[in-house]
Design a protein around this nucleic acid. Structure first.
Lengths: 82, 82
DNA sequence: TTATTTTTGCCAAATAATGACAAACCGATT
DNA sequence: AATCGGTTTGTCATTATTTGGCAAAAATAA
């Protein structure tokens, strides 16, 4: 969970609440909570908005976001024969 | 398109028709055609069945299938700012 | 305890993937 | 040119997955 951990870290450093993040993203708090814990995946526009809210390069977040996606694809592979 | 090219190559080497492949997979011919050309993705059970029909190790096909999946995830990334 | 924040469980809406069918296309043969 | 077998394309229906919301439960503070 690279992406979720990173946005959580950035959010906490900036003393922001999930409530404020969710508001900026136009989603509700539980949804944001799940994104932060990697239970749900942010969509691409949301990554851009997050980088703005958190004041980091979009590239950096995009990279972690993509890495998580690749990891999950590979990981699903273990269910292969199910 | 590693996976599609491979099953096409194997199918042709074995002088099999798409019709027969589709039948074995329980789908119709156009669907199989799309899988072979990478327009649609085979599902996991289908990869197993394909390896049996084509008499190759499931591992080998699974590897190509997974590689394609990873490539497509990375490739979608270029649409990022759309 | 009370207030605030975060997480969980569950259901609804939106989106994407899978499949079928008809018709078009392509090559070879006649 | 006409036809035949095989493959591909266009389009729509069905199904599965993802995304989101709401209420309530945990957790954390105060």
């Amino acid at each position: 969970m690279l992406f979720g951990d990173k946005i959580k870290e950035l959010r906490e450093n900036r003393r922001l609440l999930q409530r404020q993040m969710a508001m900026s993203l136009g989603i509700n708090v539980p949804m944001y909570s799940r994104i932060e814990r990697g239970e749900r995946r942010a969509k691409r526009e949301q990554v851009i908005i997050l980088s703005q809210i958190l004041d980091v390069e979009t590239e950096d977040l995009r990279c972690l976001w993509l890495a998580d996606k690749v990891v999950s694809v590979i990981h699903e592979e273990s269910d292969f024969g199910r």
